[in-house]
Amino acid sequence: MTALLKDIARHPSGRIGLITFAVFLIAAVMGKTGFTPYDPLMQDRIARLQGPSAAHWFGTDLFGRDVFSRLMDGIGQSFIISFFSVGIASLLGAVLGLTAAWFAGLWDGAVMRFMDVLLAFPAILLALLIITIFGPGTWTSVLAIAIVYTPIFTRVVRGPALSLRRRDFVDAARTFGSSRRYIMTRHLALNLVAPLTVQVTLALAWALVTEAGLSFLGLGTQPPNASLGLMLSDARNLMELAPWLLWMPAVALMLAVLSFNLLGDALRDILDPKTRRRLA
């Protein structure tokens, strides 16, 4: 793990991604544990719609709440939702993809066709449907985004698993009488870690955007709590009066997505033995 971090730090774009991600992670942890300059929910009637200043670095919003503090809280909220949803999606996708490749036949057909159905819906539309059924909230968002991204992980895992299953080392394992569980964990799953890791970083970026989209539409995080999408939505009407309200969360979202994509690029180069040699 430390070796991997070192490799990322040595990778030119990976270094930028890693630093940006670290800054965001610190902000998110501080935002969620209450180490913010102001209470993100505290309203200050006197200091409404103030521009960036020494007291309020990123200015204040319509209710006089500190934008910087709300941003930290919002990033925390966005990170929690995207981490949990991608965690569930990758785990579920890996298990479904592995078993589909291994058992083949009817199970494979059933799983993959169901995934095709899910993929047929645009991501945000499917998420909207799920939230409409269960009602908005943090955990509904997690569930919705997880379901939306599971098919991608299933496919990413099933493809290589199908080819690994036919490799000689799996046949060799059968001649020893190795158990199915041993073959699936040691010979298949272990060789799938690399493609899965790359996919996770990319999915994190998408999940972040999807979560912001849901909140923007009022179906994700509910006010008065902060979230990037919600802040963007609130700022929309005050765009000309207080442009910082729009700029701050927009830039934050963009940088967060960028950091995940840069990390994904770096991981793809590092985990692929072919490009790895070129980097060293």
């Binding site: 490799r167 000689d168 080392f169 046949d171 060799a172 001649t175 020893f176 272990l190 870690v193």
Partner: peptide, 14 residues
Amino acid sequence: QMVFQNPNASLNPR
């Protein structure tokens, strides 16, 4: 027991 043709493919690289 069996020994396969291609040693690259019959050993798990990980």
